[in-house]
Design a protein around this nucleic acid. Structure first.
Length: 199
DNA sequence: CGATGGATGAACT
DNA sequence: GTTCATCCATCGT
């Protein structure tokens, strides 16, 4: 049950709602016989229109191609030498998505340590950032456009197990435009969220 | 074809 | 609090 994938219609909704509802869900990386699992504890919504901070403002390019495809697909981009993972939302042609910013390691933590480097001794640092979690789960451009609603994919999203928490909305991190919009969502008091930056 | 600039992370003071 | 290594798609020439 906890590894049943989320259905298509979970993602074919308003992006801000999907971002908030993804908190507590499981991100699952299938590698051979092993499942690497993290609980989503931080997310951000990026809208296809009226959002100056979103990649969608660049229009349909080779980089943003996946954003224009079906909701539930993976949109991955490279930034400063790191990968970042998004889930496509809304409808085909509406280039919206949710950035997965932090995970709480659930299963496969030894694999995550190997991926992140043996110098990482504090488990809180394994997956508390969009680039870190991609490194920890071995997510790369090989997963660009994969179906995150399919349990046979190397990467997908699942309901997870029951988990009670409070949600907090804050401004998004690392952007210079539209900083007034409270489209970052975190699980209150969860130690695996990213540190907030100052500007 | 060179320049630019990030939805970052790590290592500093 | 700060700096800086990082990569490549995109854009200007």
């Amino acid at each position: 049950m906890m590894i049943d994938p989320l259905p298509d219609d979970f993602f074919a909704r308003a992006t801000v709602e999907v971002a908030r509802d993804l908190l507590g869900k499981f991100l699952i990386r299938r590698r051979a016989a092993q499942l690497i699992i993290g609980r989503i504890v931080e997310s951000e919504a990026y809208l296809g229109s009226d959002d100056p901070a979103a990649h969608a403002v660049a229009g349909r390019t080779k980089r943003t191609q996946a954003l224009f495809e079906e909701p539930g697909k993976a949109y991955i981009f490279r930034l400063h030498g790191h990968y970042c993972l998004n889930v496509v939302t809304e409808t085909v042609g509406n280039p919206s998505g949710v950035l997965i910013r932090a995970l709480e390691p659930i299963r496969g933590i030894e694999f995550m340590r190997q991926q992140r480097g043996e110098s990482i001794t504090d488990d809180h640092l394994l997956t508390n950032g969009p680039g870190k979690l991609c490194q920890a789960l071995d997510i790369s451009m090989a997963h660009y456009g994969v179906d995150l609603t399919d349990a046979t994919s190397p990467l997908y999203l699942a309901q997870g197990e029951p988990y009670a928490f409070e949600t907090v909305a804050t401004p998004r991190i690392g952007i210079t435009k539209a900083q007034d919009r409270l489209w970052r969502f975190v699980i209150k008091n969860n130690p695996f969220v990213t540190r907030t930056r100052s500007f």
